[in-house]
Amino acid sequence: MVPFARQLESLGYPDLRAVEVSTLQVNLGWRCNQACKHCHLQAGPERPEQMAIPTMQEVLRVAATCCIPVVDLTGGAPELNPHFEYLVAQLRGLGVHVRSRSNLTVLLEPGKEHLFEFFRQHRVELICSLPYYQEEMVDRVRGPGAFQKSLEALRRLNRLGFGQEGSDLELHLMYNPGGAFFPPMQKPLEDLFRRELAQRHGIRFHRLYTLLNMPIGRFQDYLQRSSNYDSYMGKLLASFNPATVPGLMCRSLISVAWDGRLFDCDFHQALNLPLLPGLPQTIGEFDPEILATRPIRLEEHCYGCTAGSGSSCGGRIVSGEP
């Protein structure tokens, strides 16, 4: 395989650099009520990692002083952090746009059902995982019962106004493939989901984002067990699309781990690959000027963000295939 760094060098990027830090993606912990087969963090109910209040206060300080417009909360299930509501309320008080990623089923866990109203009250943008519109596939990837619980959570969000046409209560869905294949083109899949979820279940949403499964964590284990790893990596390489490079999410985002360490993305965080030496390494050392133009750490799994239409936490990067 051609090293990713050399691939970029041939395109005129001897050191890929950030262009801004407009999003702080904060991982509140690796604990999750689910243990999905594709999870790059290998999150699950037994994971102990949780962001503590002092680290959250550093996040708040950076959000307030560095003019970062968007804070993107992720996990694990971020809602399982006992200080989740504190952080969201404080961020909203600062006027920061809060985006929170939800697996949906966690909202039905005991003691969490108040979050539906909490999200509405604080105008939190929700990006909710739903890998398909049929039960069999969703439960196969996310565990028995996950689909029906997800539908129930979506119905409740819809009733509060989330996802409704013309509503500013944003509800988006996140699709990822249920196996060793690439995601569909985003727009046709969004049309398909919109039609099927409306007809079958009366559910509405705003946008659907597609995310390619990154060949790390549990998904890598699956690829290796099923003898799909080599062909998957070969397809990632063969599908490299130079047009995706300017829009790579690492160029505008910083990932903050549960313990306050800084990473170029959540995938690097999963593999414990911190920012390059010489750069600020923790949220306490956050320097917006240095980080906004920092050189980015390049690894082989970066091919997962540059294949086809590209892939990011905000869905595809470019509208067409190479």
């Binding site: 596939m137 294949f181 690439f182 899949l189």
Partner: peptide
């Protein structure tokens, strides 16, 4: 088979 899955079709 791959193309069908990669375009959002299901086994049914």
């Amino acid at each position: 088979t791959r193309a069908s899955l990669e375009n959002g079709s299901n086994l049914e």
